[in-house]
Deep mutational scan, measured.
Amino acid sequence: KLATQLLVDLAEGCHTHHFNSLLDIIEKVMARSLSPPPELEERDVAAYSASLEDVKTAVLGLLVILQTKLYTLPASHATRVYEMLVSHIQLHYKHSYTLPIASSIRLQAFDFLLLLRADSLHRLGLPNKDGVVRFSPYCVCDYMEPERGSEKKTSGPLSPPTGPPGPAPAGPAVRLGSVPYSLLFRVLLQCLKQESDWKVLKLVLGRLPESLRYKVLIFTSPCSVDQLCSALCSMLSGPKTLERLRGAPEGFSRTDLHLAVVPVLTALISYHNYLDKTKQREMVYCLEQGLIHRCASQCVVALSICSVEMPDIIIKALPVLVVKLTHISATASMAVPLLEFLSTLARLPHLYRNFAAEQYASVFAISLPYTNPSKFNQYIVCLAHHVIAMWFIRCRLPFRKDFVPFITKGLRSNVLLSFDDTPEKDSFRARSTSLNERPKSLRIARPPKQGLNNSPPVKEFKESSAAEAFRCRSISVSEHVVRSRIQTSLTSASLGSADENSVAQADDSLKN
């Protein structure tokens, strides 16, 4: 292990032709098999893994070397290190390495390699500790012929580059190093199909959405987006994914797998022009299946994007999809995704031109529960009313008269009656009930004795009459309010007539 670390330190600071010789020695160290011998017992696995620490030291050392060589000349050094790393990870899946030390190597290698970024000039870069990406002036992410390196360097940008540029090249004859992302992409596909350690798979799935944002990485080298989509959909639809995973937390289920895969599918929607129609349908189907899991909100957001990006695919699945959405409970976490999906859909009339009455009724059935102001915040309630109004205007004229009683009944049950079921009123009724029952229970537990009763009969009569009056008032709060309003209006009217009579009498006395 110490000798391997010494080789790594020497290679990191070497800029001459001896660098390749040092890498040859490190490569021989990495070539050791990580498969346990067949006769190895389970209690000896930890000791055997400790004997392979030099392999881990070599791989982690290459990660440090690549981070240094990416910004220094010659660029061919970075290319050689990158290829060695990718080849080593491929061996893991070729020979099915399952030892804990092998999983640790893959975890740290993917953690580093999935941080690679590219700008519009195809320059590769890595983020620093502050998250700012520094791009290399010597390494690009696409394949290029050595003699055409300078031509590639002087080509115009596709868009303004992001991030601070690296140091300027030493001279005009500098050759750019090619670090094609397709090599890593193929290893990522192998990981999605064969990885057995949940920690490694979770890391890859968590980092892929951010990497897919940099389309330069994908399009400048032959990366098959179709295969990526197929691998992701197979993970969700195939039963073998959960069987092969180990190291998963207790209670791990298909729902947890959906939570990890759906963000990658959402990021892949922007590549729909490069996906086969069959793959697009598979993607939409997987998102529909996710509606029954805890990732339902993410799936609804993804389907909203699909309705804009892939209208030809979503239009066929939309009638059944809208009916499925009615089975989702009206909760605060689902309110905004569902209502925004319906609001977006209302502005795309070509998608729902074939809707029948059942689909329009489903839209109103989804939106009406969110009009309850005692359960949802003001934004959700306003958005629900907006969706109902928009869809009522957009639905066909023959359907409107049939939906009017349905909508008014839903609004009455969710908006008007919600004020009668407020917690304050319920607590008031509970308190009044307890007050009504309390005197009775006290009389049963403690019967009054005439000799020891010091309270006069008049006081008892007053208290009983007050309790009886309170019971009468607490029967119905709404009736009490109505009666008080009527009494107030009658009182004001009587006072007004009394004032008029007094004024008339005063005038008569003055005349006399």
Rank of each mutant, 00 (worst) to 15 (best):
L201E: 00
T79W: 04
Q190N: 11
G125L: 02
L208G: 00
K94S: 11
R117Y: 01
V64A: 15
R80V: 04
R246A: 12
T72P: 01
L192N: 00
P157D: 12
L208N: 01
Y82E: 01
E195C: 00
S211D: 01
V204C: 04
L124E: 02
V86S: 03
T98L: 07
S224V: 05
P249H: 07
S234T: 12
R244K: 08
P74K: 02
E147Q: 09
S96M: 09
Q90S: 13
S150K: 08
G125R: 01
C139N: 04
V204S: 00
K152N: 09
L212C: 01
Y93A: 00
S221C: 02
L158G: 13
L70P: 01
R117E: 02
T241E: 06
G251I: 03
S49D: 12
L189R: 01
L73W: 13
T162K: 13
P100K: 04
P249T: 08
L158E: 13
R175K: 12
S237E: 12
L176N: 10
H88F: 00
K152H: 13
H95I: 04
P161V: 13
A58S: 04
P222E: 10
G125A: 06
P137R: 13
R186M: 06
G163P: 11
L176C: 10
M144I: 13
S221A: 03
L124T: 05
Q190F: 06
R186H: 11
G156V: 13
P160C: 13
D54S: 04
Y181W: 07
V55M: 02
E195W: 00
L124Y: 04
T154N: 11
L188I: 12
S49C: 08
Y93R: 00
K215Y: 03
L212Y: 00
P160L: 12
G61P: 00
V179L: 12
D130Q: 13
S196P: 06
V225K: 01
K202D: 06
R186F: 05
V179S: 03
L245Y: 06
T154G: 12
A50L: 06
K56T: 05
A50M: 10
K240Y: 11
P209V: 12
R207F: 02
V81W: 01
G156Q: 12
V225N: 00
E210G: 06
T79P: 07
G131L: 03
T154C: 13
P165G: 09
S221L: 02
K202A: 06
L228K: 00
V81E: 00
P127R: 07
A248T: 11
L242E: 08
R213S: 08
G166H: 12
V81I: 06
S234N: 11
V204H: 00
C139S: 05
V216K: 08
K215R: 09
P180Y: 02
G238C: 13
P161D: 13
L203D: 03
T57Y: 05
C139P: 02
G238K: 08
S211K: 06
K202S: 09
V216R: 08
D226P: 06
K153V: 13
A50Y: 07
P127Q: 05
L236S: 03
P157W: 12
G251Y: 05
S87R: 11
Q67L: 02
G163Q: 13
R207W: 02
V200G: 01
S224Y: 06
K240P: 04
H88G: 01
G149R: 10
F135Y: 11
R246Q: 09
S136R: 02
A102P: 00
L158H: 12
M235E: 01
E195L: 00
S87W: 10
P209L: 04
E145K: 09
R175Q: 11
V59S: 04
F219H: 09
R246M: 06
C229T: 07
Y181K: 02
V179K: 02
L115N: 15
A173R: 14
A231L: 10
G238R: 09
P239R: 10
A118Y: 02
Q67W: 02
L158Y: 12
K193E: 13
S155V: 10
L228H: 00
K56D: 02
L63K: 12
L232D: 01
Y181S: 03
L124Q: 02
L189D: 02
L245A: 02
S234W: 06
L232W: 00
Y143V: 11
E83D: 07
T220C: 04
Q227A: 10
S230A: 12
A118E: 01
L121G: 08
G156M: 12
C141M: 02
P164A: 11
G125H: 02
S221I: 02
S159D: 12
P160V: 11
V59T: 07
F252L: 12
V81R: 00
S87M: 08
Y143C: 09
E147S: 09
A50S: 08
I89E: 00
R123E: 02
P180E: 04
Y97N: 01
G131N: 08
K129W: 11
K199A: 13
E53L: 07
S159L: 11
K153A: 14
L62Y: 01
R244Q: 06
K193A: 10
P239F: 08
S224F: 06
P161W: 13
D54V: 02
R80T: 04
S221F: 01
P100G: 06
C233P: 01
S51T: 12
R134V: 09
L91A: 14
L228E: 01
L184K: 01
L85M: 04
E147H: 12
A102S: 07
L203Y: 05
R244S: 05
P100T: 04
L116K: 02
F185E: 02
C233H: 04
G61Q: 01
S230K: 06
E83N: 09
L245P: 02
T57V: 10
M144D: 08
L52H: 08
M235N: 01
C191R: 00
L192A: 01
L184I: 09
V179F: 09
S87C: 09
L176S: 09
V179G: 03
G166I: 13
K129F: 07
S155I: 09
Y214P: 02
P74G: 02
R213T: 07
Y214L: 04
L66Y: 03
I218E: 02
K202H: 07
T57I: 07
H77E: 05
Q227D: 12
L192Y: 00
D142I: 02
E151D: 14
P164L: 12
A118I: 03
P249Y: 07
P127T: 05
L245W: 05
K69P: 00
P100Y: 02
A75F: 07
Y143G: 07
C223Y: 02
A173M: 13
R134P: 03
H122I: 01
L62R: 00
F135Q: 02
G177C: 08
I218S: 03
S87L: 07
H92R: 00
L73C: 11
S155C: 11
L124C: 10
I89K: 00
R106Q: 00
L212G: 01
F185A: 02
I101K: 01
G156A: 11
R106Y: 00
R186D: 14
S49L: 05
A173E: 08
S103R: 07
K199D: 15
W198F: 04
S221Y: 02
L121E: 13
H88A: 02
V59Y: 06
A248G: 06
L85R: 02
P137C: 05
L228I: 04
Y93F: 02
H122N: 03
K215P: 08
G125F: 02
L236K: 00
A102E: 00
P180W: 01
Q227Y: 05
V132N: 10
G238W: 08
I89P: 00
D142A: 04
L212H: 00
L116I: 11
F252P: 10
L192V: 08
Y214D: 06
S87K: 06
G177L: 03
C139G: 02
K215I: 01
H92Q: 03
G251E: 08
D54W: 01
M144S: 09
A248N: 07
L121N: 10
R186P: 06
P100L: 02
E210K: 05
T79H: 06
T72F: 06
Y97P: 01
R207E: 02
C191G: 02
T162F: 13
H77Q: 07
R123C: 04
S51R: 07
P161F: 14
R207L: 05
A78Y: 02
L158A: 14
I65C: 04
L99H: 06
E210Q: 08
Q67A: 05
V200Q: 00
K69I: 00
D54N: 01
S76Y: 10
P164E: 10
V81M: 02
K69G: 01
Y82W: 06
L73Y: 12
A75L: 04
P127W: 03
E210W: 05
T220K: 03
G206W: 07
T220P: 02
Y214F: 10
T162Y: 11
V64H: 15
E243M: 05
G247C: 09
S104H: 10
V187P: 05
R106L: 01
C233Q: 04
V204D: 00
S224L: 04
